[in-house]
Simulated assay, not measured.
Amino acid sequence: MDKRYSKVFKPGTFPDITYVSRKSGTMQYSYEERLQQSLSIDGFLTYIVGPSKIGKTVLCERVIGVDRIVEMSGNDFVRESDFWNRVAKKIGISTEAEISETNADFSSNEQRSTMVKKNYPANKEKILQYFKESNKVLVLDDFHYAPAEVQYDIACQLKEVIRLGFKAVIISLPYRSDDAIRLNPDLTGRLSVIEIEPWKEKELQAIARKGFHELGISLQEDILSRMAMESIHSPQVMQAICLNIGLLPGESSVIDGKIIEESCRFTCANLPYADVVRVLKAGPPTRGQKRLKYQLTDGSRRDIYSLILEMLADNPPLVEMELQELMARIQYNVPECRITTQKIREALRNWQKILEESGALYRVFEWKDDIIHILDNLFLFFIRWSGI
């Protein structure tokens, strides 16, 4: 174990040494410059959209600064829809004003008084004042986790206050058919959209180059390429793979393909997706009937749900997989393929229903328009290296 790695590679916090600035393919401006411009325009709501684990929050930390950010999540509004109450609790401001009233009762024999205390919601003006005086910016991450009706209400609430100088950034995933921000007509002309593209291989390699240069270690090009592929477009996964090379038990002076594979297995060892995989493999209740199993070329026998999961984990890792690609993988791995596209669609619809009824951790993909969209790159990384 080499503890120096922990100071260089930081998958869970701001990577000061290995931060890599990027530009979108169609623009000459960096994402940092675009976010800075957006925040400088009064009356505009900033909307950052991009795949999971791609560095959206880190971008905000880089441009805004950790000390200026008030960070919240769509999960904060799953059970409570009062937007300003939740924001007030986050910053430690009470939104309740306690008022006491005294009622006196008289009779021929005695006088009694009763103290009645009532709570009245305080005006949100003091919340806005706090943000303005403290130069704070609200960053609402994982916006897609909030219920659809709550998303719409939040959009309306923010539309009213951005005109007063309130600064807010909403972060969400793409491919949302119920996009409460971009589809909200009230925000037309008041919205600044920054779409974050998946990381390219060379950009991911730059993370490793910077970090290992800091450590005085030189890596071969094929090793950098392998690490970038296994990172699945995610800088967070790349940071984790690099970090765990140094945290592996024992010592190794050479970083080769075997070390990369061992680091990947070590990286996924503590990821919280085992129960998600169990639920997906189980599928819907069978009512006592055994599912048909299919013989794969590797000698294993899998039912339809275990088979699809295995195909998602196959090479190359794809965060978007069309039904045609999934069928091609099945046909390649199941020589005597008797599986129809209708059966695959039915299985994916069953999965979609199960995930929608489960908690936020379980929403790892979305099945839409015959395309599987992986919403959590770490989940795809997990099923590739956990031995499902």
Rank of each mutant, 00 (worst) to 15 (best):
Y19I: 10
S253H: 15
L39M: 13
N119G: 09
I91L: 12
G211T: 02
S24W: 08
V237E: 01
F381Y: 07
I69R: 01
M1K: 11
K281Y: 04
M27K: 15
M229V: 11
I69C: 09
L296M: 13
M311F: 08
Y19E: 06
K10N: 08
E310Y: 09
G65T: 03
E32K: 13
S306Y: 01
V279N: 02
F365E: 01
D67E: 15
D275R: 14
M238P: 07
I154N: 02
R338L: 12
T18I: 04
V116K: 14
A228C: 11
R329V: 11
S263Y: 00
H233C: 14
A88E: 00
Q342W: 12
R329L: 13
S386E: 09
V66R: 15
L59I: 10
L348W: 04
S134W: 10
N75C: 09
L35S: 08
T267F: 01
K167M: 09
R226L: 14
D376I: 01
I69N: 04
S234E: 00
L361F: 10
V70S: 01
R226K: 12
G165V: 08
E71C: 11
A97D: 15
P272S: 06
Y145N: 06
K53I: 00
K117S: 13
G50M: 04
I54K: 01
L173C: 08
K343V: 14
I330V: 15
A146K: 00
G250V: 09
S24F: 08
F212Q: 03
I93N: 04
I371G: 10
D105A: 13
R22M: 11
I308A: 02
I196Q: 12
R226G: 00
Q295V: 04
P285L: 10
Q289C: 09
C242E: 00
S38D: 10
E33Y: 05
P235H: 05
V20Y: 07
Q239W: 00
N109D: 15
V161T: 12
E61Y: 05
E214T: 10
R278N: 14
E149L: 14
A240N: 09
V279P: 05
V20R: 07
E101W: 12
K7I: 02
S94N: 15
S253P: 08
G50F: 02
S358F: 11
R163W: 00
M327C: 11
I170F: 10
V78D: 02
S253W: 10
M311L: 14
R22G: 06
E320L: 14
Y273P: 04
A347H: 03
R345N: 13
E230I: 03
I371Q: 07
D76Y: 04
I91W: 05
Y294D: 01
S6F: 06
Q151V: 03
E32R: 07
I344A: 11
D314A: 15
D369S: 15
D179Y: 07
Q352C: 08
V364A: 00
G299C: 11
Q205F: 02
R209Q: 06
V78A: 12
E149M: 14
L280V: 06
E366H: 10
K124Y: 03
A228V: 06
F83V: 10
Q220G: 15
S263V: 04
A360R: 14
I217W: 03
P317W: 03
Q324K: 14
A269L: 12
K200W: 07
L140F: 06
V66Q: 15
G216A: 09
